[in-house]
């Protein structure tokens, strides 16, 4: 199954909000995926298919083997949907 990691600085609040919204959008799109959330330093040791994070943290994940998807507004499910549609193979 496709693996997606939602990443924030601490892996506590922000990435969990993102994860809940990403799961909702994926369900709407009819896509099955394994979605987890974690902090940015743990993320560098993991190899999911996709990492979803903010522009601010994407810079510190440069060179990561996973494809990075950037979301700016974590409450805007339309933006999340557009970003997923544009990036998921």
């Amino acid at each position: 199954m496709m693996k997606i990691l939602c990443v924030c600085g601490l892996g506590q609040g922000t990435s969990l909000i993102l994860r809940i919204n990403v799961e909702n959008v994926l369900r709407e799109m009819g896509i099955e995926a394994d979605v987890e959330n974690t902090d940015v330093s743990s993320a560098s040791a993991e190899h999911p298919d996709y990492i979803i994070t903010s522009n601010e943290l994407a810079q510190s994940l440069e060179g990561h083997s996973s494809k990075i998807i950037i979301v700016n507004n974590y409450f805007d499910t339309n933006e999340i949907k557009t970003a997923l549609e544009a990036n998921l193979a």
Partner: peptide
């Protein structure tokens, strides 16, 4: 956390959610 990880917790226009770990 803000000083270390930057302003990534500004989640949407106007809105910030500062926090730390349990």
């Amino acid at each position: 956390s803000f000083k270390t990880n930057g302003p990534y917790f500004v989640l949407a226009p106007n809105i910030a959610l500062p926090h730390a770990r349990p």
